[in-house]
Amino acid sequence: MSPEDIARLEHWLADKTGEQITIGAVKALSGGAIQENWAADIQCGDELIKAVIRCDAASAVGDSLTRAQEFALLKAAYAVGVTVPGPLWQGDAAVLGRDFFIMRRAAGTAAGHRLVRDKTLAADRPALVRQVGREMARIHSITPPREDLAFLTPPAVHPALLFVQESRAFLDQYHSAFPGLEWGLRWLETHLPTQEPLCLVHRDFRTGNYMVDEQGLTAVLDWEFTTWSQPLEDLGWFCARCWRFGQLDAALAAGGMGPREALFEGYREISGRQVTEQDVYYWEVFAHVRWAMIAIKQGERHISGQEPSLELALTAHIVPELELHILAMTGLKPDS
């Protein structure tokens, strides 16, 4: 962020708040592939606010939310008690030349590989996983229609079936065929669970996308895939093998952090609903297929030459492992 950017931000915030504004300690944070995050200390009158400025990245993926929409989601989640960074100000593209918003900065670390190994962080792991369950139940308490979330279109068909249809349409025009994924999509189609009422579903709530400090969870992050869907989708995504960061012990099935039962218990505390492993199984298969579809699209950004990157290139090579696990989960493993 250039000194000119910072000066424009200060001016804009002063106008907006009527306070004297000084912005210091601006530092790039590791962001996602879709957006850039900047840490900044904002002196706003008498208050020193430790903040994050979240901007669109130069290259954004088409099917994720805008920063303005993400800000609306953050406010909605904050209002029902989800642990999210406090939303502060929605940006104006005229200020930085791209969409952004400002939120409070949560303490802690999100890096999945570190979280699963460093037991000084959230030392009581079952308690952490129970909290994740409670957070999910609060998110799912938000139901359509919502005027503030009107940018989220309720799917006209079962959300999982919509995913199957969209994935097939993508694969039909893609340069490579994926027989393993086709099997997974077929299985998702033929095992479709009964549709439940729609609710807000985070859709990327996994280890790596929430922050943790010594005490526990400090923030649920990365709301850019959130939409109206089926509640169990979030629980399946969190428990899927591909998001356990190598922790394959069944006692750590929930995000590589703790047992599924703890997640279900926390979920029941808020929602009143007792979920079972069998209920979530479909959505764990779904999670592998969905992550594989995203991985193909990320890998294509390297393959196409649009954004040469070792990380994106290797993401394409995650797909076979996901496909084989989908086959194993759906009864195709030899001798199973």
Partner: peptide, 13 residues
């Protein structure tokens, strides 16, 4: 289907 996918895995992961 299993063997084709396993072949990919044997190289990628």
């Amino acid at each position: 289907l299993w063997s084709l996918t396993a072949q990919r895995v044997s190289e990628s992961a």
